[in-house]
Write a protein that binds this DNA or RNA. Structure first.
Length: 420
RNA sequence: GCGGACGUAGCUCAGUGGUAGAGUCCUGGAUUGUGAUUCCGGUUGUCGUGGGUUCGAGCCCCAUCGUUCGCCCCA
């Protein structure tokens, strides 16, 4: 038997309702904030990601799905969404249409070891905002994210963490101070951190090892070494969050894996997801557009992991999709023919109708009606059809009545209204 | 890339070297025109795969593939 490749999975019809719920809620909320959907290709030139995400990041170094096409170009399945959005922004001269607000949703690909909440093909919903450079934009975006979480019913399960990563002006000097400090406590750090010190000292702050964390409390924090501009930006952000009454936690140890972030970084973390506790993450990347060859434009964005959100979703809050009517047709050709026409009339009236197509007796068909979870079964047998009637059964109560064929639509509408 | 656990019916799992099982699901009947409850019957299988040990392997050993949890990293 041929199976799916490692780390990818089918999303069966039983699950897609939950996906729709997330996607539809996201669209509704984002549109309220002025965002419109952008759809970019699922693969790009490899160079786009190595430049945007950073040559030394783990994503580029060991996680990209790279391949050559028949022309010999090196292409890559997108490992994240922002790089493509920035490319589109530049390629289509959207700096003439500021502010530019877009959202996207779809699959991303990373060659990683799969585990809980982590897949090789996973799905993100994200937003990017180009133009505004002040903390107002950051605050509005966080507010939108939290509204989305409340709307899908996981508001209480998620905490907003924020930090400032500084900018090119202040990050360099800070990096040196941090490195100096880490050197001084080198022996206490775990083996991994000793390695990371050289490549990316900021990452050491992220260390989860028990032994190191005590020492890290004493490490110089980026926050205390922000330049004037960055400090004002951060204070401005805190002020907006306070005014909005949004709960947040400053996490001086939060750093971002992707190289392009400046100033604001934020993350929504949830408990109960094991090591993969970040359900959304984002931040400001004021330098990226210029770096990628566009007209220098500040920007801020975030992405959410759908699989992780789904792990948090409360089943009861997801609207179920089921037919309004299951149509039972027990009889000869005349019966099924009039059933076919009745089904279309009901659909014309806007109802969701599942008609029994596979023959069988009343018992079998009723069983299917029950399984379909339809609220109403319409039963057509020889008796009904010859009398110009239809039997209407409310599945929940078992109540059944006979109605003239031309009044069936009206009657069903009434019954469906009553039970809402 | 590294470490641990686990692969037995569609699903959840029991089975410590001697005839492959339970629950559920599906299906037939009790009920010749009525589902979800009840009762009775039935089908469910290369025991992940390949090798080895043994008179004999679902069980022990080796390899491999897959799943899962963690590390690294990330949504």
């Amino acid at each position: 038997m041929i199976q799916t490749v490692r780390g990818v999975r089918d999303i069966l019809p039983e699950e897609t309702g939950r996906w729709w719920f997330l996607e539809e809620t996201a669209r509704r909320i984002f549109i309220q904030y002025g965002y419109r959907e952008l759809r970019t290709p699922i693969f790009e030139r490899t160079e786009l990601f190595s430049r945007a995400v950073g040559e030394t990041s783990d994503i580029v170094e060991k996680e990209m799905y790279v391949f050559q096409d028949r022309g010999g170009d090196s292409l890559c399945l997108r490992p994240e969404g922002t790089a493509s959005v920035v490319r589109t922004f530049i390629e289509n001269s959207q700096h003439r249409c500021l502010p530019w607000r877009v959202f996207y949703m779809g699959p991303m690909f990373r060659y990683e070891r799969p585990q809980k909440g982590r897949f090789r093909q996973f799905h993100q919903i994200g937003c990017e905002l180009f133009g505004p450079d002040g903390p107002l934009a950051d605050a509005e975006m966080m507010s939108m994210v939290l509204r989305f979480f409340r709307e899908i019913g996981i508001g209480d399960a998620v905490t907003l963490e924020i930090n400032s990563l500084g900018c090119p002006v202040c990050r360099g000097p800070y990096r040196e101070r941090l490195t100096a400090y880490l050197e001084s406590v080198r022996e206490v750090l775990c083996a991994n951190c000793q390695r990371r010190m050289v490549r990316n000292p900021l990452r050491v702050l992220d260390c989860k090892e028990e032994g190191g964390s005590g020492v890290l409390q004493g490490a110089p924090a980026m926050r205390d070494h922000l330049c004037h501009g960055c400090e004002a930006h951060f204070q401005g952000l805190l002020g907006h969050l306070e005014r909005l009454g949004l709960p947040y936690r400053i996490n001086p140890f939060m750093v971002r894996g992707l190289d392009y972030y400046h100033r604001t970084a934020f993350e929504a973390v949830a408990s109960g997801l094991g090591a993969q506790n970040a359900v959304a993450a984002g931040g400001r990347y004021d330098g990226l557009v210029a770096e990628m060859g566009g007209v220098s434009t500040p920007a801020v964005g975030f992405a959410m992991g759908m699989e992780r959100l789904l792990l948090l979703l409360d089943e009861n809050k997801v609207p179920v999709t089921r037919p309004d009517v299951y149509l039972v047709v027990a009889g000869e050709d005349l019966v099924t023919a009039s059933g076919l026409m009745l089904a279309e009339r009901l659909r014309e009236a806007g109802l969701a109708v599942e008609m029994h197509l596979s023959g069988g007796g009343m018992k079998v068909q009723m069983k299917h009606a029950g399984r379909s979870e339809a609220r109403i079964a319409v039963i057509l047998g020889e008796q009904e059809v010859s009398a110009g009637m239809a039997a209407i059964k409310q599945m929940r109560t078992g109540e059944q009545e006979k109605i003239a064929m031309d009044q069936v639509v009206e009657r069903i509408r009434l019954l469906l209204c009553q039970h809402h």
